[in-house]
Design a protein around this nucleic acid. Structure first.
Length: 842
RNA sequence: GGGCGAUUAGCUCAGUUGGUUAGAGCACCUGCAUGACGCGCAGGGGGUCGGGGGUUCGACUCCCUCAUCGCCCACCA
């Protein structure tokens, strides 16, 4: 036990306690505890992006508040940290920082060193070299994050740290994937896929984003094959005309009913396409009849499937029109027209085909400009196309089952459930988990090659469970040798990697060591809490629920606490890309201290956006300083003897009032409302400082005898102990510092305050004593302030008017008031209204 | 187009099941060296609760409607 310092300061507390907590294992998880004794948290592994902003500090503080609270409630808290270093973000960063890019055709170079200086145009390196560099970069960035989290005071057990690309995560991910295959829940199929032409990979529905773009309706003249009559359709994508495979109108649309079952000829290319009926055709849109192309949008895919149409793909994987005219364009004129478009990007192709149509007289009027939503990959810069290729999919569970899970989950705040339900209700198709990228978890799969070198896609060779993790591009399937790789009669590796969510959806399994430590897993799963941002409900939360549904037929957690964004004062989300990130949180921590940053974060209620407000940091810092000083003062009032009794009415009343604060804070924290809890604790603390400390300091110094002094000293220490523990989750550094002055062990392992024992110490006192005393003191102060004299100025006479019960309460604190207010004569008078008459001396 | 949230003092936010003169902090103004804190202490001015309508003895609190902001979703003809 240390002593109380003369001049307490916040400076250096982070470093001091960070080191002490690490050395003493204050937050170490004790795995001998049973599931019922454990509170487990499925931490969001931050994307190790290198740029930190206050949003990180905010939401991670929220989780830590709960972790610390639960720990003090007696739970053994399983609070690991993960680093999300999987996926495209890392690839991009490495390309940017090192000037290298992955070229899988190159061989591995064991002596590779990064180019210096960074070349302006990235140079290609082998996949293995590239992945190695990814690992190195993320390691450096992870250290940065570790430092921030530690300085912020996150009570993470760092021995439980995981990464989403490390061997353990790859093994878990591959094992879970093989399990899905065995049960027929994952499959690989060639089908139309949403495709980003820059990223050159498939993307999933959950990664889509609609953006409004200008476009134009082009009115094209088709002709009925038999009668030669004109059929007008309107399209925003005339460049897809060569991919047209049918026309479609609503079955009840009288205008087009006569045409159903007949054929039409496309303009320019003269391709014969059927005219069909389908419910999805909207009579209100355009001319009411649409051309179906393979593929312009997801509706085209639906029509193509349901109407069993031809495939006439024209968009290549790089977003240009394929070199050769698709089948069906047989006429010389048609081929010549297509040749004008081949190799062009969609924009140029559109420009050219409009010219051609105008020349041929098949464009009616001028294009009508409109604005319409277009699908993008959320990180992409050009609209998505739909191309056909082989992808791995995970079948979605039954919608109703997933909705039931959403209902079963406790959402904080509850209205976030709606987002989940919206998403589940809008699901289309299955979950595409393959990406045509390089850095990620590979599929543990190879395919045999027949003697002609053709890939036997339908006979995948799966890795053995005990061999995981594998990299099929360097590991060899059972029964083959490396020499047979990519040779006729040999084998070839599955070229794809898994989408980052295919692995992130397993974080409870990765952190809980499902794959290699069933004993631990049983103690932590299903987890108690998933904290996360609302923007990834449709991805991380939903996908995790899907995986858990399949593997365990249960929810992965019982609670989901959804945090909002941090916004700038204009309510714009703070992000690197928006360029409005105000300060690196490390700088904020240096300027205001961790407790101050946490104070600001604690004001952000679950599900609501938090405004970045430097003022709140200042307020938080003052609170932490006040806590140090007030504690020093309270402790310097003297130590009560071992059998000191809390006898005075005012002392008892304070403890009873504090018991109410404990109750309120506990209720609030149980429902993840840390902001309300802090508000109540803080309000009490300031009145404790301004009123109670002022009222009792004279008595505590012995002004009214030893017994009365002991009562004050004991009450001060009881209250202080309680307040420190209430504040501990919010201000872990200042509270720990004060605790160390006079208590053993860490305040963060101390029990959460108990309202019942406070009430017992308060011995049923009337809490109004405290209120009346504070009110009278305020009146006396006002009189002095109005007279512009010092608070030390003498009061000659003070008369308190009020009802009998108020006066009775007043007299119980009269001695303390007389002392604190420097009042010579006190008197009371019965009255209906409470009123205080103050006569200053002199 | 559908949905979810928000709208209370200059700013950031509270406001419990509708009930006496709507609260706090910051900022601002006026004071005060008072047994810890001047990153302090005391006091003060300042909102009629986004607009409109309704229910009620009574609404910031309930209902309807409009507006603004933010977000989620939506099959791009």
């Amino acid at each position: 036990m240390a002593t109380v310092p003369d001049k307490p300061t916040l400076e250096g507390l982070e470093a001091k306690w960070r080191a002490r907590w690490a050395a003493e294992g204050t937050y170490r998880f004790d795995r001998s505890k049973t599931r019922a004794e454990i509170f487990s948290i499925d931490t969001p592994p931050p994307t190790v992006s290198g740029s930190l902003h206050p949003g990180h500090a905010c939401s991670y503080t929220h989780t830590d508040l709960i972790a610390r609270y639960k720990r003090m409630r007696g739970y053994e808290v399983f609070y690991p940290m993960g680093w999300d270093d999987n996926g495209l973000n890392t690839e991009r960063r490495v390309q940017l920082m090192l000037g290298i890019t992955c070229d899988p055709s190159l061989p591995y170079d064991p002596d590779f060193t990064v180019p210096d200086p960074v070349p302006s145009r990235p140079i290609g390196v082998s996949r293995r070299n590239f992945v190695e560099q990814c690992a190195q970069i993320t390691e450096i960035l992870e250290q940065k994050y570790f430092d921030l989290w530690s300085d912020l005071g996150l009570s993470v057990d760092w021995s439980q740290t995981y990464t989403t690309i490390g061997a353990h995560a790859r093994r878990t991910s591959q094992a879970a994937f093989l399990d899905l295959i065995e049960r027929g829940l994952a499959y690989r199929i060639e089908s139309p896929t949403l495709w980003d032409v820059d990223f050159k990979s498939a993307v999933a529905q959950a990664e889509l984003q609609d953006r409004n773009l200008p476009g134009a309706y082009h009115r094209l003249r088709f002709t009925a094959a038999s009668t030669g009559e004109a059929i007008h359709i309107e399209t925003t994508r005339p460049e897809l005309l060569p991919a047209c495979v049918a026309l479609v109108a609503h079955p009840e649309d009288a205008r087009y009913q006569p045409l159903f079952g007949t054929d039409a000829l496309t303009p320019l290319f003269g391709v014969r396409v059927p005219v069909l009926a389908h419910e999805l055709a909207d009579p209100e849109k355009g001319s009411g009849i649409a051309m179906i192309c393979t593929f312009g949008d997801t509706t085209d895919v639906t029509w193509w499937r349901e109407l069993q149409l031809d495939l006439r793909a024209v968009i290549d994987k790089d977003g240009t029109l394929v070199p050769n005219a698709p089948h069906g364009i047989d006429s010389e004129a048609g081929r010549a027209a297509y040749a004008e478009l081949a190799g062009k990007g969609t924009k140029q192709a559109q420009r050219r085909i409009v010219e051609l149509l105008r020349e041929s007289g098949e464009l009616e009027g001028e294009p009508k400009p409109i604005e319409h939503p277009v699908k993008f990959w959320e990180n992409g810069t050009r609209p998505l196309e739909i191309v056909t290729n082989r992808q791995w999919y995970i079948r979605y569970p039954d919608k109703d089952a997933m909705l039931a899970r959403g209902n079963e989950l406790h959402w904080w705040p509850d209205f976030m459930r709606v987002r989940y339900e919206n998403w589940v209700n809008g699901l289309i198709g299955d979950w595409n988990i393959s990406r045509q990228r390089f850095s990620g978890v590979p599929f543990p799969v190879w395919y045999p090659l027949d003697n002609d070198g053709n890939v036997r896609h339908e006979q995948p060779l799966l890795a053995a469970a005990d061999a995981l993790p594998v990299d099929p591009s360097s590991d060899v399937p059972a029964g083959y040798t490396e020499a047979q790789r990519d040779r006729p009669g040999g084998f070839t590796a599955d070229p794809d990697i898994m989408d980052t969510w295919a692995t992130s959806s397993l974080t409870p399994l990765i952190a809980g060591h499902w794959v290699d430590d069933p004993d631990l897993f049983e103690r932590v799963f299903p987890m108690d809490l998933r904290p996360q941002a609302h923007e990834i409900i449709r991805t991380w939360l939903f996908y995790t629920a899907v995986r858990s549904q399949y593997l365990f037929d249960s929810l992965p957690w019982t609670n989901a606490a959804i945090s909002g964004f941090v916004t700038d004062p204009d309510r714009k989300k703070i992000s690197k890309s928006a360029g409005n990130a105000p300060d690196d949180p490390t700088a904020l921590l240096a300027e205001f201290g961790a407790d101050a940053v946490r104070y600001w974060a604690s004001g952000g209620r679950p599900g609501q956006d938090t405004i970045f407000d430097r003022n709140q940091f200042k307020v938080g810092r003052r609170l932490a300083i006040k806590l140090l000083n007030a504690s020093r003062f309270a402790l310097s009032q003297g130590e009560p003897g071992p059998d000191a009794d809390i006898t005075e009415a005012l002392d008892r009343a304070v403890l009873v009032a504090l018991a109410e604060v404990v109750d309120a804070a506990t209720v609030a924290l149980e429902s993840y409302d840390y902001a309300k809890a802090l508000e109540r604790i803080e309000a009490f603390f300031w009145s404790f400082c301004d009123d109670y400390l002022e009222l009792v300091k004279g008595r505590a110094y012995g002004g009214s005898g030893d017994e009365a002094a002991a009562s004050a000293q004991a009450a001060l220490r009881t209250a202080l102990s309680t307040l420190l523990r209430l504040f501990a989750p919010f201000l872990p550094f200042a509270t720990e510092e004060v605790w160390s002055w006079w208590q053993d062990g860490s305040v963060h392992r101390a029990p959460w305050p108990d309202a019942a024992s406070l009430r017992a110490a308060g011995a049923g006192a009337d809490p109004s004593v405290r209120q009346v005393a504070a009110d009278v003191l305020a009146m006396v102060r006002k009189a002095k302030s109005d007279a512009k004299v010092s608070m030390k100025a003498e009061v000659a006479h003070c008369v308190v008017h009020g009802p009998a019960e108020v006066l009775e309460a007043f007299w119980l604190a009269a001695d303390d008031l007389r002392d604190a207010g420097k009042i010579e004569r006190l008197a009371t008078e019965m009255a209906d209204e409470f009123r205080v008459e103050v006569t200053l001396a002199g």
